[in-house]
Design a protein around this nucleic acid. Structure first.
Lengths: 189, 189
DNA sequence: CCTACTCACATACGCTTCGTATGCAAACTT
DNA sequence: AAGTTTGCATACGAAGCGTATGTGAGTAGG
């Protein structure tokens, strides 16, 4: 059973990324997994249940990648900037864009209320909380700052991805993001 | 004919706002307008065509409201901040959230490529361009900065709207937004 | 004044899709 | 060993979408 669950997850992830949630056919994606819709309804409840599971999986992978990007920085502040840059780069992945950034909010509601608890947002929040605590960042509502930073990063990435030359646009987006983030800095160098 | 077109637009706007694009029934929304799907296909081509028309209409109204908010500020910089605050407040409107911020990007693609040319984004871009030109803002890619600002504002608004007490959360979001935007300022006061 | 054409929609049809209800074999329980 | 639950497959009904076709009103042309 556990194996069938993972096969459905993989197949759903593929179908949602390729066709979008609305256009993905449950008959097709379950058949691609060697099963039928019966298995899907039994395991995930309904189509949205599968989407929630896929979103949770991809979101977890994103948080891990962002954490890794931040771990290589020398200061906590630079770690936050690195996480932001990592978000921007990740959102260039069509799979992440479509599943987590577009269909996720549209069909599951705001990320802050996802059952999976949106690992990306939690990561940014804890980083911001530490920086405010230590006085590196000016006093600010932690959730608001985290939401603004990740929102800016992801939205910039949507723009980069839609641009005719993403590779050339990406550095501009990252530079501007890091400049804007300095608004939170207690003392700008 | 022009009247029927507007009735379909109004009915579509209602249905999309209430049920979301995917769940809205063309049979129902055309019937509510006193017509049938035949009229819709004749006038708008298909379901997405109606969505694009509705999005263009709402987006235009949003840009007008933002412009008005900016016009009352004393300096161009404060006008930009006021526009951002206006975006945040507007996104609390369920209609705007669902149609323009969620379903629009999900079903029509990135706003920068909408046929309607996304009036909100254009407005922010021209404001940013002027501020960079006059040296109030540090040198930065204009499109990137505009995208980051509007993305941050809208994403913050999605968070505010999903919070249990939007009225209490809203000021925090606006304060944090204006703080973050100062990162673009050439000299922070 | 009559015919022919076009426009703006309505109607009819087929296909796909979703959710549920039911069937069924295997594993587990007692 | 009989009953029950689990894990799926199959069957069924109800929308919904897009297209193909029908139709009446208006318009143009002769």
């Amino acid at each position: 059973m556990e194996e069938n669950r993972e096969r459905l997850l993989r197949s759903g992830r593929l179908a949602f990324a390729r066709d979008g949630f609305a256009a993905a056919s449950m008959d097709d994606l379950t058949a691609a997994a060697g099963l039928t819709r019966g298995a899907l309804y039994h395991t995930f409840g309904d189509k949205k249940g599968l989407l929630a599971a896929v979103v949770a999986m991809v979101d977890g992978e994103m948080a891990a990648r962002a954490k890794q990007a931040g771990a290589q920085a020398e200061t906590p502040w630079e770690a936050l900037l690195a996480e932001g840059a990592a978000y921007i780069e990740m959102a260039l992945d069509p799979e992440i864009r479509r599943i987590v950034l577009l269909d996720g909010p549209a069909f599951l509601g705001d990320p802050s209320q996802w059952p999976s608890q949106n690992a990306c947002l939690e990561l940014t929040k804890s980083a911001v909380a530490d920086l405010v605590e230590s006085g590196v960042m000016r006093p600010v509502d932690v959730e608001a700052a985290a939401r603004l930073l990740s929102g800016a990063a992801f939205n910039a990435a949507l723009w980069v991805a839609a641009s005719p030359t993403p590779d050339e646009t990406l550095p501009n987006a990252i530079t501007a993001f890091q400049m804007m983030a300095q608004g939170f800095l207690a003392s700008r160098s």
